[in-house]
Nucleic acid binder design. Structure first.
Length: 599
RNA sequence: GGCGGUGUAGCUCAGUGGUAGAGCAAACGACUCAUAAUCGUUGUGUCGCCGGUUCGAUCCCGGCCAUCGCUACCA
């Protein structure tokens, strides 16, 4: 990817049935933002999109629990999620929602094309519905006695006691977990996506993919060995209506939430384009074979991104066994890479809102800085295997690495120069040791950049921290605080280390944009260095969706993004005694936080 | 049951067909510009167990044990 190109950065859609926890943003939010920011700095045209996923049964359940309508509950959590992602500094071009009129229309357009091309089957299927509401009752919302082990709280999909997979009709005395009533098992008419029609095309596509994480490739190959038609409609009154005569009017039939949610990548791109004033601009990321697309998600979402969404795109293009023609959206490109992370656990346990093993993004950011969280996720996140978040480790990484390593380097360099010169001193003739440091920081642009481009974020920030250590060592070796008798040499050393700091803040900026902005300002920079998203309150463009009133989107102007390259500092720039950019944490926070978890 | 991950120094993890590394913790030293922050020196490991391939395996293959996750109507 040497020359400028269009890079779609697609992030998994957070489900709007509650606030999101740090595991969610560790899985897709921060890694994708690092990637997107870096790609912009390399001069690529990045489009970073996502939104909240707002349909489906869990939203209805949450809404009922709070005495809200589904729309009200979705709007409530949409807003919370938007604010949290904004606070983290995730640089979305558009973060929207699946309840917009634009999304409904896009979903229906794609459904229609798939239908017209012959990739949607209609057939009867057994299912459970709630007699009082007429809504589909997902298997996991049915509980009863396990026929194998007599466990009385077995779920319709699986018995938590003996671990056996179940069919809800196997359960003895089945009850709805939502309201206790006995579910009605019925034959329902539903639509299915004909996945087997894409088996060959999907395998051929997968064979051309390179650079994917091995776990994703293996998992996907496995999936493709056994493709079955997958239902894409439900008996629900909350979702996108099915755009067919005799179906669109029915209040009890909707498209299945996963079907509409994955189309969000496309609808959000279209919404972004329309809001940008060039309604066709999205095609540069979707219809150009030279464009690339990276999808970021947790491992539980691989199936949708490496199997189902590509299948839907192939169907749109008429590239399955039934043939067909691209529909109203034109031909659409399949994902370049599916970048899946593993899971973050919490003090050894899986995150679980219901069991209150959880740290919400909001709570975290009330007490600690966004960059402290971003650093932890970058350095120790679940990139290729599950990783465990512990407060002890968070504190250690924050204090020993972020504060004592990078923060202290910035602070001591700027403080020394400010005290001795009051400005960035001039560099005299460079010695070997000076040139070595400057070479190391310049080379870090290449090594770190290559790692970010390959989505090896842990290694990338580790490489950056090695360069930070080299700069600290440089100060230990050159001892500028002892050079008061030789101001020329002292100025040269301080100039050199400040140059290194200046470049390091550029390299750090995809990972730690907030603090890089502050280092930029410490060194006399004005205006925006690391651009941040902003929340805008907007009207739905179309109506026809489920949104009432305005809604918040996350967007931003990232056109002033700095270049990924060494930039010379200017001698003579005034410097003041710096305020530390990071906060050292007291060990007592560990007990406090664990106490909070247990309370 | 099926699929997959993991098992390497006290801790967290990286890594390679030629008998192993980083950070932290520990000890000692240097330094004092800096949020007591930095820099240097010093250990330790039958690289889960058993077998196979190989001149040689921690890294390849098979089996086993332990542990974790996924298993599609769940978003």
């Amino acid at each position: 990817m040497g020359r400028m190109t269009h890079v779609l950065t697609a992030l998994a859609w957070p489900y709007a049935n509650g606030p999101r926890h740090i595991g969610h943003v560790a899985g897709f939010g921060v890694p994708a933002d690092v990637f997107a920011r870096y790609m912009r700095m390399r001069g690529h045209q990045v489009l970073m999109v996502s939104g909240t996923d707002e349909h489906g049964t869990p939203i209805l359940v949450q809404a009922d629990a709070e005495g809200l309508t589904a729309g009200e509950a979705a709007s409530k959590y949409n807003r919370i999620i938007v604010e949290d992602l904004d606070a983290l500094g995730l640089s979305y071009d558009l973060f929207t929602r699946t309840t917009t009129g634009n999304h409904y229309k896009t979903v229906q357009d794609l459904f229609t094309t798939l239908y017209d091309n012959g990739y949607i089957l209609e057939k009867k299927t057994p299912g459970a519905i709630s007699p009082s509401t007429g809504r589909t009752l997902p298997d996991r919302y049915i509980e009863g006695t396990c026929p194998h082990c007599a466990f009385t709280s077995a779920r319709g999909d699986q018995c938590d006691n003996c671990g056996r997979q179940l069919d809800p009709t196997d359960l003895i005395d089945p009850k709805s977990r939502i309201n206790g009533e006995t579910p009605k098992f019925v034959e329902e008419d539903h639509f299915f996506l004909d996945l087997p029609a894409f088996a060959d095309a999907l395998n051929a596509w997968l064979d051309t993919r390179t650079g994917w994480r091995t776990n994703v490739v293996r998992f996907t190959k496995n999936l493709l060995e056994d493709l079955q038609p997958r239902p894409i409609s439900r008996d629900l009154d909350w979702g996108v209506p099915i755009p067919l005569p005799g179906w669109a009017e029915r209040p009890d039939k909707r498209l299945y939430v996963w079907f509409d949610a994955v189309i969000g990548y496309l609808s959000a791109s279209i919404e972004w384009a329309r809001r940008s004033g060039d309604a066709e601009a999205w095609r540069r990321w979707w219809s150009d074979p030279e464009a690339v697309s990276y999808y970021f998600m947790g491992k539980d979402n691989i199936v949708f991104h490496s199997e189902i969404w590509p299948a839907m795109l192939l169907g749109n293009n008429g590239e399955g066994t039934a043939g067909g023609e691209p529909g109203s959206l034109g031909r659409l490109e399949l994902p370049t890479e599916v970048v899946s992370s593993e899971f973050l656990t919490m003090e050894g346990r899986q995150f679980s809102s219901s069991r209150r093993v959880v740290i919400y993004v909001r709570d975290f950011l009330e007490r600690y800085s966004a960059d402290a969280l971003r650093y932890y996720i970058c350095a120790a996140g679940p990139e290729t295997q599950d990783s465990d978040f512990t407060w002890t480790e968070f504190m250690r990484r924050n204090n020993d690495e972020l504060v004592a390593g990078w923060g202290n380097l910035v602070n001591r360099s700027v403080a020394m120069a400010a005290k001795n010169f009051g400005r960035i001193p001039e560099a005299g003739e460079l010695e070997e040791i000076d040139r070595e440091l400057l070479t190391a920081t310049r080379e870090a642009f290449d090594t770190v950049g290559e790692l970010i481009g390959a989505n090896k974020i842990r290694a990338a920030i580790g490489e950056t921290m090695k360069t930070v250590a080299a700069a600290n060592k440089y100060l230990a070796d050159t001892v500028p605080w002892k050079l008061k008798e030789d101001p020329k040499r002292q100025g040269t050393v301080l100039h050199t280390v400040l140059q290194a700091v200046n470049d390091l803040k550029t390299i750090m900026s995809p990972f730690l944009p907030h603090s890089s902005q502050r280092v930029y300002e410490l060194l006399g920079g004005e205006g925006v260095f690391a651009p941040m998203p902003r929340i805008e309150e907007v009207d739905d463009l179309d109506g026809g969706g489920a949104i009432e009133g305005t809604y918040p989107i996350l967007t931003g102007d990232y056109s002033q993004t700095p270049k990924w390259e060494s930039t010379p500092i200017r001698s003579g720039t005034p410097l003041e005694k710096p305020v530390p950019i990071f906060t050292k944490l007291d060990p007592s926070i560990v007990d406090e936080e664990i106490e909070r978890l247990n309370s």
